[in-house]
Design a binder for these strands. Structure first.
Length: 722
RNA sequence: GGGUGAUUAGCUCAGCUGGUUAGAGCGUUGCAUUCACAUUGCAAAGGUCGCUGGUUCGAAUCCAGCAUCACCCACCA
């Protein structure tokens, strides 16, 4: 073999694009191709990750690189391990977020969604989304994702639409999806309902007002939202409260803020007699707890706030006023009439929409829900969606990493309420239900005949992503893909979507397939800036990962995000750490340079000296140790160990010790050293490849040639077989 | 109000089921360098492992309590 000359330094920008192209063209990202080409055994154990689909209109941020570095490292390891390895890529239509983004664009042009027909508007948003998709998919290539592009999916494409409608219909037919008039979280800014999990709470100072509806009203009540009190129908007290017992059952007619009210006094044990005045003004239309109270006591409800957060159905004084204005007016009215007994400052939580920041108004609306407590038959015994979600985690069928998220999950499941899945935006999966007069039809397609009108609402984006692990594999058809690749092996999302996404996958996969969606849920944390703050537009502390990649190489960035970051823990992004791994890539480059210069000839059969044999034995033991870490998903450990071995054992100790032997007069000593160093280099490249795929593949190609795709490092056998 | 996690060198973090002088990277200081690599090498300084008790022959590691920080959940009117 002729000697190979390497430049003195490694230049990632000169090689990465070409290497990715070579990987992609080989077809080996697709496990079926690996089997067909004999790279992977046909009966190999499968290993599958369904990528958490990034928002279709998003741009790549460090959080993505972190998440994808973890997944790609795991995927590459298992592929080299000989497993039938599939990483499914895709994007999420992110209904509300995408819709909001597009409406902003329209607003800039002085237009709104009302300027278009529903179909035209949808077409435009979808086109916008798919244009953007190309952008983010290109970025995933830059960071080296070894995903099977032939299985690319989008949560709102035709195949996924069929899956969504099938899932909806099955659940509808079984009574697990129902339409009901209930209090929902209304976002006046986004003009849509949202689920409980899309709400964020912000602690704020508010005033707590204690007052009476009228002079002759016997019980004072307290509230932070006086304007809603025009919707009151009752006052609830604790049944054992001596102060108020005598009034229970009576009804009072009062005129409150010029609005006539009929207030009944009821007793309910949910009322805390020690808080405030021990009496609650009941506003069934604008408070979930009051709605439930009203149902128990058969009270009417009166809606006084509309979808634009303005007052309605009340006195002229308040009608049409915004909620906050109305609050001031009511307080002034109370003061004028001498009805305000106390005003104090308290801390309480304001609910806002996670997506739009709009202040949530609880409103009664006719919406679609998933019933998590309804019993249905599963193999002859009754169960519920909630109990499916509970049991697979409790039993350990699904492993949760780190373990403490299990508790958080279980606690969340215990307190779960029905899931509101209908949204009043146009971009998303339209509810597959049609109405004609009193007739209703739920099916995959519109019913035959004239006059059927489809439900106007669309589905919560998480409903479609909840089907992700199997909608990407051909479900509802019983495909080979589904048989071979489901359940998937690992899912690797951020812990912030444990409830929004992971729980829904468990629910829907459990119900529709009677399978868990994945065996292990490995949650990662959040990438923060140097000072531990979240990256945000308002702080202007954003870092474009592609800038980091350009100057340091993708490998260095990936490695800096993996080493030393345990499951579930947040990490502070540190450019110096990236630079450290850029230096490491260069160090490896020079190790290879030295080895190829000192051992230009491949002498695999040269007899080993005792010392060199010992080095290789230690290397084998080290490889086994690293393999254990990889199997247990301790990437942060494995990465650090490999780094340390290559730099401080291989380079600092072994190479230095070998130098005299390479110059020895004894040919046997020389050849032994040459063989030992070459084996060390090849094994090091293999061990490091999952973490730093580009530089290792580049070196491998320079040593072994690039003519035959099968010689690529990506598909070489891992140093430890079993 | 309930819950979870964190607290180890100047900084960022490892330290699994308790066992000899507590580790890494970065940073700092000193020295070296025509030798594969200055994107380098060698060496050094630097920690009473948040606090208080307990269990133990022995605890950064287990238990209890406390403190500070962060996060999650919750419709207290």
């Amino acid at each position: 073999m002729s000697s190979i000359e390497l430049p003195k330094t490694y230049d990632p920008s000169a090689t990465e694009t070409d290497i990715y192209r070579r990987w992609e063209q080989s077809g080996f990202f697709n496990p079926d191709t690996c089997v067909a080409e004999g790279v992977t055994a046909a009966d190999a154990k499968p290993f599958i990750i369904a990528m958490p689909p990034p928002n279709v209109t998003g741009t790549l941020h460090l959080g993505h690189v972190f998440e994808h570095a973890l997944q790609d490292t795991v995927i590459r390891y298992h592929r080299m391990r000989g497993r039938r390895t599939l990483w499914i890529p895709g994007t999420d239509h992110a209904a509300i977020a995408t819709n909001a983004k597009y409406e902003k664009i329209l607003a800039k042009e002085g237009k709104s969604r009302h300027d278009f027909t529903r179909e035209e508007y949808f077409r435009q948003v979808n086109e916008f989304a798919l244009d953007n998709q190309q952008h983010i998919l290109g970025q995933l290539r830059i960071i080296g994702d070894s995903v099977d592009w032939s299985r690319l999916a989008f949560t709102l494409d035709e195949e996924r639409e069929r899956a969504v409608r099938t899932a909806f219909k099955r659940m509808y037919d079984e009574g697990l999806i129902y339409r009901g008039n209930r209090i929902v979280n209304w976002d006046p800014k986004g003009q849509t309902t949202i689920s409980d999990d899309e709400i964020i709470h912000e602690e704020t100072k508010s005033s707590l007002y204690t007052f009476r509806y009228a002079k002759d009203f016997p019980i004072p009540i307290a509230t932070t939202r006086p304007e809603t009190k025009v919707g009151d129908v009752a006052v609830a007290v604790h049944p054992d409260d001596e102060r108020y017992r005598g009034f229970v059952g009576k009804t009072y007619s009062v005129v409150f803020a010029d609005t006539p009210l009929e207030i009944r006094i009821i007793a309910d044990k949910d009322v805390d007699p020690t808080y405030g005045t021990g009496a609650v003004g009941v506003t069934p239309a604008h408070s979930l707890i009051d709605w439930e109270l009203a149902e128990r006591h058969d009270l009417p409800f009166k809606k006084v706030i509309n979808e634009h957060a303005r007052m309605e159905n009340v006195s002229d004084m308040l009608n049409g006023k915004k909620v906050l204005e109305a609050r001031e007016l009511v307080v002034r009215w109370l003061k004028d009439k001498g009805l305000l007994e106390k005003e104090e400052e308290i801390l309480n939580n304001i609910s806002k929409s996670d997506r739009t920041g709009g202040i949530i108004e609880p409103l009664p609306k006719l919406q679609w829900f998933v019933d998590v407590d309804k019993e249905f038959d599963r193999k002859g015994s009754p169960t519920t969606l909630k109990s499916i979600m509970r049991s697979v985690v409790e039993s350990g069928d699904i492993t949760v990493m780190p373990e403490h998220f299990r508790k958080i999950y279980m606690h969340w499941v215990e307190n779960l309420r029905d899931w509101c899945i209908s949204r009043q935006i146009l971009y998303g999966h339209r509810i597959p239900v049609w109405y004609r007069g009193d007739d209703i039809s739920c099916d995959l397609v519109a019913p035959k005949g004239d006059g059927w009108i489809q439900d106007e609402d669309t589905l919560d984006t998480w409903f479609s992503s909840g089907l992700w692990t199997f909608s990407t594999l051909g479900w509802p058809d019983t495909t080979d893909d589904l048989r071979i690749y489901h359940p998937t092996t690992v899912i690797n999302p951020g812990y912030e979507i444990l409830t929004l996404w992971v729980s829904r996958m468990i629910m829907l996969s459990g119900y529709l397939l009677d399978q868990i969606p994945f065996h292990t849920a490995y949650f990662h944390g959040i990438v923060r800036d140097k000072d531990g703050r979240k990256f945000s537009k308002s702080l202007n502390n954003g870092i474009d990962p592609l800038d980091v990649t350009r100057s340091n190489g993708t490998d260095a960035l990936r490695m800096s995000l993996i080493v030393g970051v345990g499951p579930g823990s947040d990490l502070k992004f540190d450019l110096n750490k990236v630079k450290g791994y850029r230096n490491f890539a260069n160090k490896l480059w020079n190790i290879a340079r030295f080895v190829l210069m000192s051992a230009p000839d491949d002498v695999p059969r040269a007899p080993l000296t005792e010392g060199d044999a010992l080095v290789l034995e230690k290397l084998a033991a080290f490889s086994r140790e690293v393999t254990d870490d990889m199997e247990a998903l301790r990437l942060y450990m494995a990465g650090e160990k490999i780094y340390h071995y290559i730099w401080h054992t291989f380079a600092d100790d072994i190479i230095e010790a070998a130098k005299p032997n390479l110059k020895s007069d004894d040919a046997a000593v020389r050849q032994s050293a040459q063989r030992m160093l070459r084996e060390l280099l090849m094994t090091s490249l293999k061990l490091l490849h999952p973490f730093m795929p580009f530089v290792t593949e580049e070196l491998w190609g320079r040593i072994h040639g690039t003519d035959d795709a099968k010689t690529m490092l990506m598909v070489q056998a891992w140093p430890v077989v079993e």
